[in-house]
């Protein structure tokens, strides 16, 4: 496991809003990495989601913008109806290509592109959800030497997604939601 990372990517689906609240409220105010998240909420209005999340987050939360580079200590949410990718130039890219496993944005698309762009220098987190999105992406991240974190299925509001990720990709860390933020802080060398 390499501790050095340039980015955290995160995916959640059913129950994801609450999970994101818990996670973001636990990140240190000086958290040094950008964090990009795909959250299937079915909501069109990601700006509202960002506002809601910002209330519990010590870090700024915003929708990921096309062609912009993620900045340290900022939380980015994928826009609704688009796949969010990290380009090889380290900047966000969007696509309206077909849904992947019924999802757009797809967690796998973000994870796979980020794994390639960061050449494994990243941390992937799969949390609660009722499908299997993120499993293949997490596998790619771990294959390239990145760190895989999965919420413990028995702790998740919907266990299918973390279970699928564990089965296909395995994990470097598998732990309850309440402990994920603390782990991210430690992996990045900061304490809250």
């Amino acid at each position: 496991m390499r501790a050095a990372a340039d980015l955290v990517v995160l995916g959640c689906s059913a129950g994801g809003l609450r999970a994101l609240h818990v996670l973001l409220s636990g990140l240190a105010a000086n958290f040094p990495l950008p964090l990009a998240a795909v959250c299937h909420t079915g909501s069109e209005d990601v700006s509202l989601l960002c506002e809601l999340l910002a209330r519990s987050s010590t870090l700024p939360v915003q929708e990921a913008s096309e062609r912009c580079a993620p900045k340290p200590g900022q939380i980015y949410i994928a826009p609704s109806g688009y796949h969010l990718l990290l380009g090889v130039d380290g900047r966000f890219a969007l696509s309206v290509d077909a849904r992947v496993g019924y999802a757009r944005p797809s967690i796998d698309v973000l994870f796979q592109s980020a794994a390639e762009a960061c050449r494994g220098r990243l941390i992937g987190v799969v949390m609660t959800g009722a499908n299997s999105d993120g499993a293949e992406g997490l596998q790619q991240i771990r294959r390239r030497g990145g760190v895989g974190i999965v919420q413990r299925p028995d702790d998740a509001e919907a266990s299918a997604m973390p279970s699928a990720a564990l089965e296909l990709a395995g994990a470097d860390h598998c732990l309850p939601l309440e402990q994920i933020a603390g782990l991210l802080n430690r992996l990045c060398g900061v304490v809250r």
């Binding site: 990718l85 380009g87 890219a93 696509s95 290509d97 796979q112 592109s113 390639e116 762009a117």
Partner: peptide, 9 residues
Amino acid sequence: YARASLRRR
């Protein structure tokens, strides 16, 4: 063409 999406296609 931006590589990330091209590669997927």
